[in-house]
């Protein structure tokens, strides 16, 4: 419930939705870049399979790994689809909260200037309750986003292991060794890029702000 007007701090109506919107937009942009990189991985995995097939018996281990990398890239693509959905919902929820806060601030001012008019106070209370419901919804989204990011991070760890194993296998590729090394190195680089982006995301103040 909203506290008594005499004790209601003005800042209550305007905590941090504006800042949260800036933060969620930054997260969204980072996620969009990860999605673009994930798409690149898909193409790279296909190339790796073709290369392993061309190398034939000299790259049997690499062939197995390139298939695994292909599966990984599909899983990553699906995970990114889920992440895009969650982030889109979170952007929308923060925008709604911004709307609530704007209205609440105006109503608070009206309440103060009207000397605590009862109807304004009722409207203020209703708007406050609505905002709290939206805030709870956003907290849920925040947890959901963290959960999905955690899952993606686990998946990326697996991708890292696969890429490193592919690098080792590439060394046994005889005549194809240098091409296989190049492909596995690119894979490793891209996985590292995603890992770095995820690291930035986890440090976002959006997850610590309340």
């Amino acid at each position: 419930m909203i506290p008594d007007s005499g004790t209601t701090p003005r800042s209550l109506a305007h905590r941090s939705a504006g800042q949260d919107l800036v933060r969620i937009v930054q997260i969204n942009e980072e996620i969009k870049s990860i999605v673009a990189v994930a798409f690149k991985i898909n193409i790279m995995a296909l190339n790796a399979i073709f290369l392993a097939k061309r190398a034939g018996s000299t790259a049997l281990g690499f062939g197995v790994l390139s298939n695994e990398l292909r599966v990984f890239s599909q899983d990553l693509k699906n995970a990114m689809g889920g992440l895009s959905g969650v982030i889109h919902k979170a952007v929308s929820d923060v925008s709604v909260l911004l709307q609530d806060q704007r209205m609440l601030r105006l109503l608070q001012e009206a309440e103060v200037r009207s000397g605590g008019n009862i109807r304004v106070r009722e409207a203020l209370r209703a708007r406050y309750d609505r905002m709290e419901a939206h805030r709870a919804n956003l907290a849920l989204q925040r947890r959901q986003l963290q959960l999905v990011l955690g899952n993606v991070a686990q998946l990326v760890e697996l991708g890292g292991v696969l890429a490193k194993s592919a690098k080792i296998e590439a060394a046994y590729g005889q005549a194809f060794s240098s091409s296989l090394s190049q492909v596995s190195g690119e894979f490793d680089g891209v996985v590292e890029e995603i890992r770095r982006s995820l690291g930035h995301l986890n440090k976002s103040e959006f997850f610590s702000s309340r």
Partner: peptide
């Protein structure tokens, strides 16, 4: 319609 416009815009363009 701000939440709908803002989130739709964000999907394709950085509002910043």
């Amino acid at each position: 319609v701000f939440p709908a416009v803002f989130s739709a815009l964000s999907a394709e363009f950085d509002p910043a």
